[in-house]
Amino acid sequence: MRVKCPICGEPVEVPDDVLPGELIDHECGVTLEVLMDGNSIRLKPLEGIKEDWGE
């Protein structure tokens, strides 16, 4: 399955067995999060992850 990258507009290869929340690194450098609503799939740049946890 191919979906358009929301950042660069180029196609992104999405596996058929994709799960909600799955992350796909696109060749343009962005990490995309897979959002699923029923059968429709959207891609969104990954946000809201705190890297610096500390414990």
């Binding site: 067995d17 799960l19 929340g21 799955e22 992350l23 999060e33 990954l46 992850i49």
Partner: peptide
């Protein structure tokens, strides 16, 4: 959080 799932794929 980001994890690597049983299939070896990254997921949030």
């Amino acid at each position: 959080i980001v994890i690597v799932d049983e299939r070896g794929r990254k997921r949030v």
